[in-house]
Design a protein around this nucleic acid. Sequence first.
DNA 1: ATCCTCCATGTAATCGATTCCACGAGGAGG
DNA 2: CCTCCTCGTGGAATCGATTACATGGAGGAT
Lengths: 342, 342
Amino acid sequence: MASIKDVAAEAGVSVATVSRVLNDHPSVSDDARTRVLAAVEALDYRPNAVARSLRTDQTRTLGLVISDVLNPYFTELARSVEEEARALGYSVIIGNADERPELQDHHVRTLLDRRIDGLLLSPTDGGSPGILDAARAGTPMVFVDRWIPGLDVPVVRADGRAAIRDLVAHLYGLGHRRLAIIAGPAATTTGSERVAAFRDALAEYGIPLPDAYIGEGDFQAESGRRATEGFLDLPEPPEVVFAADNLMALGALDAVRARGLRVPEDLALAAFDDIRWFVHTDPPITAIAQPTPELGRAAVRALVDRIEGRVPESVTLPARLVVRRSCGETNPSPSPVRRSKS
Amino acid sequence: MASIKDVAAEAGVSVATVSRVLNDHPSVSDDARTRVLAAVEALDYRPNAVARSLRTDQTRTLGLVISDVLNPYFTELARSVEEEARALGYSVIIGNADERPELQDHHVRTLLDRRIDGLLLSPTDGGSPGILDAARAGTPMVFVDRWIPGLDVPVVRADGRAAIRDLVAHLYGLGHRRLAIIAGPAATTTGSERVAAFRDALAEYGIPLPDAYIGEGDFQAESGRRATEGFLDLPEPPEVVFAADNLMALGALDAVRARGLRVPEDLALAAFDDIRWFVHTDPPITAIAQPTPELGRAAVRALVDRIEGRVPESVTLPARLVVRRSCGETNPSPSPVRRSKS
DNA sequence: ATCCTCCATGTAATCGATTCCACGAGGAGG
DNA sequence: CCTCCTCGTGGAATCGATTACATGGAGGAT
């Protein structure tokens, strides 16, 4: 592969001049410029990003460590992150933590070894050594979706409290009184916050949230299945299960189906995170939708601000409730005019 | 951030010795080794991968350019690729082409600029300049899922012919005679091959595949919706639609639902690629399942073989039909004993 | 005509690692 | 006791870029 020296030789100039042309430095004669450009063309030369990074101490690369690539929410996030980053002249390297702290740390270290310019993180746990070290070392960093309290790192996320309150109102209106939740790991902010918001919303209706109605999930489908099994085995099973992410909702569906039960007649279901398939499931699933692409874009902008010396800002965007049929027929009262159904 | 010089100073040895310890070269005294290790610990030193890559001319990184991250098939593939690569000591950088040739080329070039050791590719089109150049330049490369004919590059893929024949047999057995397909772009191998296999299978039953029954899709949901609309507007609409990937099946479902029709009564549906949600859609969708994780692993092994000087092998694995209810009730004859239905 | 300024260019240092080569010490063999 | 090997070690070149500094020529001002 041709190097800058080859180009210099071919064009009959020094490597400095070639470099200047490539980085369009003003003080280069037209003559030299055209000769260099011709040489670049002739040799099919492409600058070696590795060498450039070593010298300039910047890679124009962002690291993104997400909790689970198989989760459509995160892949949508990853996509918008990459898109925005590309628009700003950065590449993105994605690390998949699979909800495992040690894998997360592996990726953080690998990314740091590659001297990425900044790190976008959706932490799997409450603060693994790798992340803490990186934060202390002053690595430009932004949390997205989940975060670690107590660190001076901007957070870009969706606030689901209002949407969860709307959801509980909807469920209450449908006559449900025994409501359960499949939580994420307590070590993640989204894991604990969604439970807290749910409990608070229930409290407004004087409904308690007993421990037996809190399933311990890990944001993976299998845990959703197990938690749902647990609920169904209870002497007094809940009427509704609210899964704190879409994969656990999938697991819940698996469990319900395995028992030959039906949604919403035997058990109603709602989920945090909306995905396209929820429109076509049997029945369509009521969900809380996050403005995922906006989150990704905002996170990249915050991180790049931090990298380029501006002051990054935390961003919180609202989530919203999308009602479908998985919690029971919608109350027709809001629009009493329309009679025709279907 | 501490460099190898700092470690050398701290340990009272030369950088050469530090390097030898780090790469566990045999000829280092125990004394020197322990002092270096202590210094590494004390300074929290991590080797700069950029500098190392520049010198050794290898990055221990694989590039993976996939057609669409939002497609669960590719994300499952990406996951298994990363897993296997990590096991073999490589990192993976994923580029998402979004089914757009120019974006694909952008990623290929960026990856090459970063001097990745090898490239895993699922080409969006029949041969963009970027890919052709890379192949000619001798970049270690392996195609996965899709490939470009005429290049001497190993291919790792699933063969769907047998499964498609099984599907057609299944559909024929159900009494369907007017079968349509939503194809992928003709420029991709999977786009054209699946149509060819479908046509051949139909021919075995003496059923033609008229042009009107070939929808032009691009592997994205929206195109599946449009193609299905087109079919439904035909004077004689098909009884079955076979979508060449899961996203187009989703689009087909959208179209059917928008018209208030039902699957399979009004239109039967089958898809290439099986995903978990197909179990819970209304109705569950009959699909052709690829051994996706195995494909990812085999592709990485082939690529690493090539990189490390061994001879890489092309791999073809079989896909298989998974029958569900979206094409009509399954023939009950195999198990006449069971009466109870519910 | 002299001096100053500005512009285009080249030389060489530098980034942080790896690795070839040389060198000195110590042990073995004659 | 001398020679030869082996082993541990350090010096320095190298990878491919960027960039500070030096240089020389052209042109403008006085």
